[in-house]
């Protein structure tokens, strides 16, 4: 069984590795950031010649490589520096998470008058971690499948747009690494594009972006339960749904974050030599490159046309509001 599953993913993983190698070589030749090239390569291949069926299972493993890379990145995190800003960072992450959830809900219901359930999917998707959050809350929200498809297409569109624009805006404004990283971590959408944009800006910005984004991701379980309770009450229940449990919370929790914390703890305790830390750094850089080729192949430009204009305007208004406010906050607190 394991051998059969492995055989199924090997061709696609080989495509990812080959793509990563091409991005690396091209990057040296044309002088463009290799992470951006890796994503771009994936987008171009997937939307021109398409991805062959035999490679699809392997290409879908890109999320695993990203999460493994983030775990290894724990070795490079300056834990003392992180602890020194930890409380202020957490306060901003929670405040903006609450702001974006309520903002999307209010704008979706009162301005664009889209169905409540679609608005909730967009709110969770934008506020926490994109498609994973949409999937996590969809059962509690009791959304229809076409609403899930709309929300996913909308969020993926903004993943692509923010990945292309954020590093450019950061350079235009000449933002300090920490400010850019925290800004991207708070206001961009899914984990992959946040990590890609952060590391495209600078290694330090990438680390701050990833840490900030992980701070958002850990709230996925709480938000999924809140939505499940809210919609159960809307439907005449007492809110005591079977999903509002510790087991449900644990089921939604992004476990790779624990791996990241563990590796960061081991490294900061001095249990790893400089050579081992350097090896882990090479490891996560390689894994990110492989993951971002896969991230690129998951961006279907044709599929984005399925998004309706109203969901698009809801998320656009939230992105503009959160982006402007969080940039101001990050500059006032961390610059």
């Amino acid at each position: 069984m394991i051998a059969r599953n492995t055989a199924r993913v090997v061709p696609g993983v080989a495509v990812l590795v080959a793509g990563a190698a091409v991005a690396h070589v091209l990057s040296t030749a044309v002088g463009v950031n290799r992470l951006i090239l890796a994503v771009g390569l994936g987008v171009v291949v997937a939307n021109s010649v398409g991805t062959p069926e035999w490679a699809e299972d392997g290409l879908a493993t890109h999320k695993l490589w990203l999460e493994t890379g983030i775990v290894l990145m724990g070795a490079r995190i300056a834990v003392d520096q992180l602890l020194s800003v930890g409380l202020s960072l957490l306060v901003l992450v929670v405040s903006f998470l609450g702001f974006s959830l309520l903002f999307v809900e209010l704008v979706a219901r009162n301005v664009f008058e889209i169905p409540d359930r679609l608005g909730s999917l967009l709110a969770a998707g934008y506020s926490i971690c994109g498609v994973s959050a949409i999937v996590a809350v969809s059962s509690g929200v009791r959304a229809k499948s076409e609403q899930i498809a709309y929300a996913v297409a909308t969020i993926l569109l903004f993943d692509a747009v923010t990945l292309a624009t954020y590093p450019a805006i950061g350079r235009l404004l000449d933002l300090p690494d920490i400010v850019f990283g925290i800004w991207a971590g708070i206001s961009m959408v899914s984990t992959g594009p946040v990590v890609a944009a952060g590391f495209a800006y600078s290694p330090t910005a990438g680390q701050w972006a990833t840490v900030t984004k992980l701070g958002r991701n850990v709230f996925i379980g709480v938000v999924a339960i809140l939505y499940a309770v809210y919609y159960a009450r809307q439907n005449g229940g007492d809110g005591e749904t079977s999903v509002a449990s510790w087991r449900y919370f644990w089921g939604q929790f992004p476990k790779f974050v624990l791996g990241f914390v563990l590796v960061a703890g081991v490294a900061s305790a001095g249990l790893l030599s400089d050579a081992e830390v350097a090896l882990l750094e090479r490891g996560y850089q390689l894994l990110f490159l492989v993951a971002f080729v896969g991230l690129g192949t998951s961006i279907e430009i044709q599929g984005m046309r399925r998004t309706g204009i109203k969901p698009l305007l809801v998320v656009l208004s939230a992105l503009v509001a959160v982006s402007v406010l969080s940039l101001g906050a990050a500059m006032l607190v961390f610059a």
């Binding site: 202020s88 901003l92 309520l102 903002f103 906050a329 006032l332």
Partner: peptide, 19 residues
């Protein structure tokens, strides 16, 4: 720095809660 974050965070949440 922590107080700055608390003040800004409260402001941001207040804006959306009041509206």
């Amino acid at each position: 720095r922590d107080w700055k974050a608390v003040i800004l965070g409260t402001l941001v949440l207040s804006v959306v809660l009041v509206s």
